[in-house]
Simulated assay, not measured.
Amino acid sequence: MKILISGGNGNIGSYLTTSLSDEHQIYSFSKDDFDVTDKVKIYDIICKIYPDIILHTAAITDVDYCEANESLAYSTNTLGTLNIASMCYKFNIPLVYISTSYVYGDHKSLPYVETDICDPINIFGKTKLEGENLIRTLLNNFFIIRTSWIIDSYKCSILKMLDNPSPIVLCSLEKTNVTSMKDLSFFINTIIKTDNYGIYNLSSEDYSSKYDIVNRLLKSKGFDKRILELPEKLLEDIATRPKCCAISSKKSKDTFSIALRTLDDIIVKL
């Protein structure tokens, strides 16, 4: 299968570029070569490749940066997605879109399911939800994957924290799942061989607070590091986080007969 990956040098895109290359013909592009805000450039590239499917991972994912740069966040995350979806519509190409649990907002204390109301409370969540809505308006053949905290990719924030000798500062104690890039890659490779299009959550089976997750990780790896808990109200220019952004992946598990790992299962394999 010919697969075009946007955001190929990003956190998710770089992992998928490597992990899917054994089975598929991968065309992976960084922003310099495939700027999703440049309609002419992406049109020319898609015309040359004519991929069987597009994995759209290009996005600004730094939540606080999005909050401070709202226009740029919308330009990349929303309008960039519109450009990709428009090309998929024009050439009848299925689309895989990586979204986020932050689209749900902050109105539940239990894990969200795909049919729950989406009412995001920060710019990142809003721009990703608008991207989802544009895809759903334009296309029928799409997979929207809502993920949680990715903790085991090449460039993920938690691994950078472990490499840094300074104490770990957590400015948000929201309850969340984690998502393993290995699991996400396997899931994508599974769903693109089907026509079970739609919206799917994908995360670990269970969930906990970020503080607890990081503590488990430190204990598992034998790191002697301190975690500083800072209430959000003490920090300026920070995006609001939901108290609970945990998601249920039961639909994914049942539809595609996949196993979901627990938090500890994923942490042990890091």
Rank of each mutant, 00 (worst) to 15 (best):
M1C: 10
M1D: 13
I5T: 11
G7I: 00
G7T: 02
N9C: 08
N11I: 07
L16D: 14
L20T: 07
H24P: 13
I26P: 06
I26M: 08
Y27C: 06
S28G: 06
K31R: 15
D38M: 05
V40I: 11
V40C: 06
I42G: 08
Y43P: 04
D44T: 12
D44M: 07
I45T: 13
Y50K: 15
Y50W: 01
P51G: 12
D52H: 05
I53P: 09
H56N: 07
A59F: 01
A59N: 05
Y65F: 15
Y65C: 06
E67N: 08
E67F: 05
A68H: 06
E70I: 13
E70Y: 05
L72G: 02
A73Q: 06
Y74C: 00
Y74P: 02
S75M: 08
T76H: 09
N77M: 07
L82G: 05
N83L: 07
C88A: 09
C88K: 01
C88G: 05
Y89F: 11
L95H: 09
L95F: 09
Y97P: 04
Y97M: 08
T100N: 01
S101Y: 07
Y104K: 00
Y104D: 03
Y104F: 14
G105W: 06
G105P: 02
D106I: 02
K108W: 04
K108S: 08
S109I: 05
S109F: 07
I121A: 01
I121L: 02
I123H: 03
G125I: 03
K126I: 03
T127D: 09
K128L: 09
L129A: 06
E130A: 12
G131D: 07
G131N: 09
R136F: 12
L138Y: 12
N140T: 04
I144F: 06
I145R: 07
S148Y: 00
W149N: 01
I151K: 04
S153A: 11
Y154I: 02
Y154F: 14
K155F: 12
C156Y: 04
S157A: 14
K160H: 12
M161Y: 13
N164K: 11
P165Y: 11
P165K: 08
S166E: 15
S172Q: 03
L184F: 09
F186T: 15
F186H: 15
I191N: 13
K193T: 15
T194L: 13
D195G: 03
D195R: 00
N201T: 11
N201S: 06
L202V: 12
S203Y: 03
S203K: 03
E205C: 03
S208N: 10
S209P: 06
Y211E: 09
D212M: 01
N215G: 02
L217Q: 12
L217T: 10
K219D: 08
K219L: 04
I227R: 06
I227Q: 03
E229P: 04
L230W: 11
E236T: 10
D237W: 07
D237H: 14
A239D: 07
P242V: 02
C244A: 05
C245I: 04
A246P: 00
A246F: 00
S249P: 12
K251Q: 15
S252V: 12
K253M: 15
K253W: 11
F256E: 14
A259G: 14
L260F: 05
L260H: 11
D265I: 06
L270N: 13
